[in-house]
Structures are given as C-alpha cells and as structure tokens.
Design a protein around this nucleic acid. Structure first.
Lengths: 242, 242
DNA sequence: CTCGTCCATGGAACAACGATATCGCATTTT
DNA sequence: AAAATGCGATATCGTTGTTCCATGGACGAG
C-alpha cells in the first residue's frame, strides 16, 4: 500500500498549498497543516522529515503547477523559438503575481548554500527553450549564459511586481525589461538585404547631414571627400534607401 | 538624556547587525539580540515596538552602510552620469554578495503590502543618479521607468549571485545584464561627427558586402547601382571610415 | 480461536520563540 | 519624611518546531 502513502502526501500538500495561497507563508505551520489535513503532528513528521522537507515538497508542488501551466500555454506556438521566449517571460511573471506566496517560496527564498532541487525542472525548461533558439541560429550567446541572464531578470521583475501592491502595479517596466533582455541574447530574424541596406544608407545620410551643417561654413573639414563627391554620395545613398 | 537612548539603540543595532552577518537571519531573535547587547527582553521591546520594528531599523542600518559605501565610491567620478550608473550597479551587486543576509533583509523580503521605508533612501539615490543622466540628455525613457527597470534587474542579478554558492559564482551574467539594461535606458554619448560617420560608413560597407555576396551571381539585383558606382561608393565609404 | 510480537499512532511534553504582566526598587514630589 | 510615580527585571503566557513514550491494533504462530 505504498500508493496510499503517496496519495496521503499529495492530499497533505494540497491542503498546505491552500493554506499558503490563502494565508501566506506564515499560515503554513506544521500544526496548522496537520490539523487542516486531519492528521496529527507526528504523522506529518513521518511523511516529511522536517518543516524544511515539507516546504521543499511544497515548492516542488508549486513548480508542478507552474510547469503544467507553462507547458500547456507554450504548446500552442508551433515553432518560433524567440516568440516562445517572450511568452515564457510573460507566463513566468503572471504566475508570480497570481501566486505570490508560492513564487516567494519557489524563487524568493535564496539561501547561499541551498538550491531547491525542484527548481531544476523549470530551469531545464528554460534551457530547452533557449536550446531550440540556439538550434535555429537565433541566439548570440551560449545557452548557459542566456539562461542566467534571463532567469535573473525575470525573477527581479517578478519580485518587484509582487512587492508593489496590486494597485500601482506597472507592467510596462516588466515589458521593457523583457524586450531588452531577450533582444540582447537573441539575434534578429534574417532580414532581407534590401531593407538592411536602406536603413543603413539612411543612417549614413543623416550622419552626413549633421556633419555638414554642424559648424556653419567650411564644415566639411571632418568629411574627407570633395563637395562634388559628397553630393554624388548622398544621391547614391538616397537611391539605396529608396 | 535622549542622546543616551539613541546611543543605546545604535549599540543594539550594531550587535544585531553582527548577529545577522555571522549567523544569518535565523540568528536574529529578540532573545539573542537582547542577551548579546546586555539588556533584557522588555528593554528591547521598549526600544523597538515589535520584532518587525527591530528588523525594519536593522534594514535601515543596512541601508546606511550601503549608502555610505555607495556615496563614497560615487563621489570619485566627477561627472559622467552614465558611467555612474555602471558603477552604481557594480556597487549594488558587490554589497549584495558581501552582505548576503543584510541584502536579503533589505531587498529580498518582499511582502505584497509592506514596503520598507528605509529603501526609499536608496531608491532616491538611484533616482538622483538617473535624474542627472536625464539632465545630461542621456536618458531615453522617463526617470521613473528607468528606475524600475534598473532596480528590478539589479536585484534579480544580485539575488541570483547570492543564490549560487560563492564557488561557482559567475559574474559575467551580471555584467552582461548590466550592460544591456543600462544601454537600453540610456543613449550613446554625442559622438564627434567624424567617428559617427566612420562607424556608419563601416556598417553600410559591411551591409553592401553581404548584399553582394549573398546569392552567388547577379546578386546585385537588390542594389540599385551599377557595378562601377558601387565600387566607387565602397571606396568613398572606406575613406569615410579611415 | 488465542496469544504474543512488532510497529505505526497520537497524546503529551520539551525547547525556543515572540510578547507581556507583575513586582520591586529608586527617584521624585508634596 | 512619606507618598507617588516611573523604570527595569523576573516570571509568565501562548505558539511554534520537534520528539518521546505509552497505547492500540495488525498479523503470524500455536
């Protein structure tokens, strides 16, 4: 009857999860969990060794919920690895603001020595996402480094959002940080040569314009071309941009 | 004799800080602090109302240390607001990894309702730094938003570094995130027209190169210039870059 | 069917914690 | 000088994490 054991554990974890979501981490005491689960304190101590053991399994339970949500939502996108990164960020932040106590338990409790082993699954999911991006040639840094950067930024943004009350919550900062960080580790989709040429030509033309009109007369001292040459150059630039 | 009160408070806070740094947050119990400070529990409860009050003032004490370090180090730079942002990031992270327990108390304890009032000083310092950058025209987003973005990214990076053991600590991720985030809210320094021209000319030349060598022969279909014209254009671009 | 052994169980208890009331003493006031 | 007042320390309360020990039931042997 080992199955009964696991079912009992799961039921205890469910009631502990309910206590955590409703009353925060302070509501999760061994006595409260045991009483709410209809068992006695020593029984709970036989299931999970410590309170730390209970909290560790509770965190694992949270990661299960998190991964279930995330996998379900990510399965919809067929194959755009970078778009999956954006969706992954938003799902992570959403989970954090909708389950703040769980999120604090899962990501906010950092102890210099301890690393929650349950977090490795979520870590692996992010690594897999980034691995697919790397396989598609859309990553400009190693997967390992991209993982660290994205994870740090995501948890920072989520914890900041949790810290603000639900009223003054400003999602634009999270969105900005998301766009910036993801753009910094990924590369743009292969653009058509024409548009790339066009933008660069326009930029060079604008730079020439400012260089020529900066200091009134004889301003072309910084431009190592004759006036006729720059004129023809700018005409070609216009044609490239067109 | 109100001064004696404040001196006593300060001494209690100092011994509490020592307990915190040596034994982590678990070592900071009202009894331990009172015993180590040579006072009794009720005396400690008269100085600070609650344990939360003690922890709040302890966090304020930490922010004092933090701001002292930061102001001292930042005073050295005369006036390059964006460089100050980089230094501010590194100082923040350094403080976090060197005082993990204090950092967790100051930045890691986020409760949906409570905001530590002592953090406002550090927040104000960052706002001041960003305000100077904005005055210098180096900010491309409002100060408020830049503050949120930088603070979230910094705390995320620092908490991640604290979470890793002191052995496998990887500072490159923090540096990469720092460069990315700061670059995303600031604008490049007004470059001299010459160097600006040079970089843009080089970029356009590279784009031309890829456009020409992309698809084997007759690749100049996307370049609306004759072969001789592109040759002369590229020569001028080289001269601009030189 | 009865008995004995083994083991999970749960009530009770221990230690430490946050927090407070009661008592004694010193100082001040009339 | 006697009463009043304010302060600090001892003792205490309720709660938490954790464990001990007696109890009771399950299960195999005779």
């Amino acid at each position: 009857m080992d199955e009964g054991r696991r079912a009992a554990r799961r039921q205890v974890l469910q009631v502990a999860a309910k206590l955590l979501e409703e009353g925060g981490s302070e509501a999760v005491s061994t006595r409260a969990v045991a009483a709410a689960a209809g068992i006695t304190a020593p029984a709970l101590y036989r299931m999970f060794d410590d309170k730390d053991g209970l909290l560790a399994e509770l965190a694992a339970y949270g990661f299960e919920m998190y991964l279930a949500e995330k996998r379900e939502a990510l399965a919809l996108t067929p194959d755009d690895p970078v778009a999956d990164l954006y969706r992954g960020w938003d799902l992570h932040v959403d989970f954090g603001v909708q389950h703040p106590a769980f999120y604090m338990l899962m990501y906010g409790t950092v102890r210099p020595g301890r690393r929650p082993p349950a977090a490795d699954e979520a870590h692996a999911l992010l690594v897999r996402l980034l691995g697919r991006a790397a396989d598609a040639g859309r990553l400009r840094v190693p997967v390992e480094q991209a993982t660290r950067v994205i994870l740090a930024a995501t948890t920072g943004a989520t914890l900041a959002l949790i810290g603000e009350g639900p009223s003054e919550r400003d999602l634009t900062a999270s969105a900005r940080l998301r766009d910036t960080v993801i753009a910094s580790v990924t590369t743009d989709p292969p653009a058509s040569p024409g548009s790339d040429l066009a933008s660069r030509a326009l930029a060079l033309d604008a730079a020439l314009e400012t260089a020529l009109t900066a200091g009134s007369p004889a301003a072309d001292a910084g431009v190592p071309l004759r006036a006729t040459e720059t004129a023809l150059l700018r005409e070609w630039l216009q044609r490239l941009a067109g």
